[in-house]
């Protein structure tokens, strides 16, 4: 079980908070991210290559908004909060990232400034394979650009796995 009861967690379902702010999509960060995922496409590095492909600017790789983890992109008043106001009390050593999903409205492009609003979409429990309770939390972040246009929505499932018996 997480530190919080299922009832407490369920009460948090449906709450939304701005957890990403002033995420300026910078050419240098985009190139660095592309390099780190070993993608050598010119698209992420050259305005000419991007223009040739019909983009308004250099696009970012599809999972680029992972950079929202940097404190720089967190609203200052939330930087000291545990998990940016969505502290579910999960035991970090037993918590895994179960699933990640993106829905794209338009490419994230160098020059964009993104704001992300996070919602706790669902919390539920299931019996683990070897007994014990597994707790699932589904969190969503909706990203909008400087013109308040929806750019993408990301959903992730965090799982606190069952407390293990003595390992064999």
């Amino acid at each position: 079980m997480p530190e919080k009861s299922l009832e407490e967690l369920r009460e948090m379902v449906g709450t939304s908070k701005v957890t990403v702010e002033d995420l300026h999509v910078e050419a240098g960060k985009v190139e660095e991210f592309a390099r780190s995922i070993r993608d050598d496409s010119e698209l992420y590095r050259s305005e000419e290559a991007a223009a040739e492909r019909g983009f308004d600017g250099i696009p970012a790789p599809l999972t680029f908004t992972r950079v929202h983890m940097f404190p720089r992109y967190c609203p200052p008043e939330r930087r000291d909060e545990k998990r940016r106001g969505f502290d579910l009390g999960f035991d970090r050593g037993r918590t895994v990232h179960g699933e990640q999903e993106y829905e794209y409205e338009r490419p994230v492009t160098v020059g964009d400034t993104l704001t992300g609003t996070q919602t706790l979409v669902d919390v539920y429990q299931k019996e683990g394979g070897r007994g014990g309770q597994m707790t699932f939390a589904e969190l969503e972040i909706e990203y909008r650009n400087q013109d308040d246009e929806l750019v993408l929505t990301e959903r992730r499932t965090r799982i606190e796995t069952a407390e293990s018996e003595e390992d064999d």
Binding site: L43, R53, G54, F55, P59, P61, L62, G98, E99, Q100, E101, Y102, E103, Y104, P107
Partner: peptide
């Protein structure tokens, strides 16, 4: 990239 509407990874 511009044609990817949704991507899910488990």
């Amino acid at each position: 990239l511009e044609n990817v509407a949704r991507l899910r990874t488990r």
